[in-house]
Write a protein that binds this DNA or RNA. Structure first.
Lengths: 338, 338
DNA sequence: CGCCACGTCGTAAACGTTTACCGGTTGGTG
DNA sequence: CACCAACCGGTAAACGTTTACGACGTGGCG
């Protein structure tokens, strides 16, 4: 682990100047003989370019940061999975931050762009505050936000369309003959909440506040929320859950209460994570295109890094309903626990 | 996004030399008046230290790389989740590589340590080849290997104990009265295979080659492997699977063939990933301590980075059997599909 | 009053690259 | 044979820090 060779070492060994070494290593036009000598010396010494010095001079680190909400969240992971190959293909390394949904941490990440250890940032904040917008305006590197950002914010923007997603799910449940469709939601999110109401309106179904239960984001919390809802109204025949983990919690509770899925209650999750396919009965889920959003975000960033400074762009990724056993057409018996 | 201020900018503004600025910013003893001037200037200009220049001079990047096999693999993700907070707490950024289990890519990562863009590396190769060992010997930064590495290799080493893990599972199945215990394995792994045989020996059960089926690592592959095994021997009453995905595949196939789990066939997975708890029936699984191994690996690396160069250390993380419905004691009805 | 110790800060070198600029050699052309 | 273009490659500056060294001024002590 002795100090590695530098271009100076090579230059001495090959009997040329460091400038020549650099030129050869970068493939700039050089006499054949010189190329040979330098290459030979570099090989013998096992030379590897120092990325730090290179970055200092070139003002490019070939690194991109991804600030994810939570290393455990399946939706974030789906984004990560999609982002990674795009960056790799474009020659960027991935620096991973986890902010645990703490705003101060997210602001920190934005601030740290000033350290110039990355060329750009992809960030997926659970919600965008004024502090975010302020820091975004002052950001020292290009940022792509996965989520919604007001017009005029100097950042590319990839959005999900949860409104349409909710509508897909509600329409689907309605088409199965369900009329008492409950919603188990994340923390006071307004968009899905409003969309749920709109979707009901569109179908001529009444809105019943008792059918809506706000809850956390995890399985146990989802279970508790579902339990409260079930305790309140007994004739629910469908549950729309704000994410798959909540839906799993709901399945737990339904099973425990002896209700069959989908016969008695149909369940739809959101995000279509791996868990949806693994659960039993397999969970129908509205994919908000996490992977797709990640991929697009990475592409936007790479594009901006190589390209020019056009206007900030906004891309909306359409949702997709993935139907599985938890909303099967009829009681086939295949999807129902005993 | 104009060029940010540097210590030179600050020095001019404050009317002092760049050395003084640096001293103030690093908290070295300085006259109070100077501190005030520099701080004022830095604040007004919104100065942020340039990490690249800093790294070049100090020869430390405060970055650590984690080379994971596959961004999709739940066991790797568990490691990642455990590694991240340790590094963050120690002041290191995380650079993520995904090698897709391609040896050349893994060698590449080791080689790229010469670029000095990270202070150290955590790597979890599916198997360690001679090429790995060769590169490890020449590695230009400390490396921690999650997996097994021969003695004398200059790298810290965190091991799972799959031998004991397999034994736990086989003993458990045996204690449930199962006597025809099959194994659905990863690609020709010798350790679990041998351990399986030993465990049978220990219980006085005969080894039957027909009960062992080699397969891939994913759900569909696992399903195919399980199907072949079932087609060959019809009296299997338990399946031990080399990982949870394979086990899910096996569950699919068992369900399709009309066998009840655990009544007819008990199933045990390995790695105890999120999927195990989500599946139905919930999957018993041998945890090889992925999270624990990740955490330990990160701690070893951080320790080595700050500490000295003691001898390479080896830590073995003990396995743990997590019992769920797929190996429930009796046919309670709770765990069985209709 | 002179010397020394000490506190403070500026100058400059170094980290390992890339690259602008310029001087020297070569070969072709008038 | 002289001149010019083209080609090569060396010198040095620059990227933004940190830090060794030394200069300067002040105060205390002999």
């Amino acid at each position: 682990m002795a100090d590695g060779p530098t271009i100076t070492t090579i230059a001495e060994r090959a009997g040329v100047s460091i400038a020549s070494v650099s030129r050869v290593l970068n493939g700039l036009p050089t006499r054949q003989e010189t190329v040979r000598k330098v290459m030979a010396a570099a090989d013998e010494l096992g030379y590897v370019r120092n990325a730090v010095a290179r970055s200092l001079k070139s003002r490019r680190t070939h690194q991109v940061a991804f600030a994810m909400t939570d290393v455990g969240d399946p939706a974030c992971l789906a984004m990560l999975r999609a982002i990674q190959p795009v960056l790799k293909a474009a020659g960027y390394r991935l620096v991973l931050h986890s902010t645990d949904a703490v705003v101060a941490d997210e602001i920190d990440v934005l601030h740290s762009l000033g350290e110039r250890y990355v060329d750009g940032l992809i960030m997926s904040p659970p919600r965008v505050t004024d502090a975010h917008l302020e820091m975004l305006a002052a950001a020292r590197a290009p940022v792509v936000i996965i989520g919604s950002v007001p017009e005029g914010t100097p950042a590319d923007n990839v959005r999900a369309d949860s409104r349409t997603g909710v509508k897909l799910a509600v329409d689907h449940l309605h088409s199965l003959g369900r009329r008492r469709i409950g919603m188990v939601g994340g923390p006071l999110d307004t968009v899905p909440g409003a969309a749920y109401r709109e979707a009901l309106d569109g179908l001529g179904l009444p809105y019943d506040a008792d059918l809506v239960q706000i809850g956390g984001r995890h399985r146990a919390e989802g279970g508790r929320a579902a339990a409260e809802l079930l305790a309140r109204v007994s004739d629910v025949d469908a549950l729309l859950c704000a994410n798959d983990l909540i839906a799993l919690g709901a399945l737990d509770v339904l099973r425990a209460s002896g209700r069959r899925v989908p016969d008695d209650v149909a369940v739809v999750g959101m995000d279509d994570t791996d868990l949806a396919a693994a659960s039993w009965p397999a969970l129908s889920s509205v994919s908000l295109g996490s992977a797709e959003r990640g991929r697009v975000a990475a592409e936007l960033l790479v594009d901006r890094l190589r390209g020019g400074d056009r206007e900030p762009r906004v891309v909306t990724v359409p949702p997709r309903l993935v139907v599985r056993a938890s909303t099967a057409e009829a009681a086939t018996g295949e999807g129902a626990p005993a």
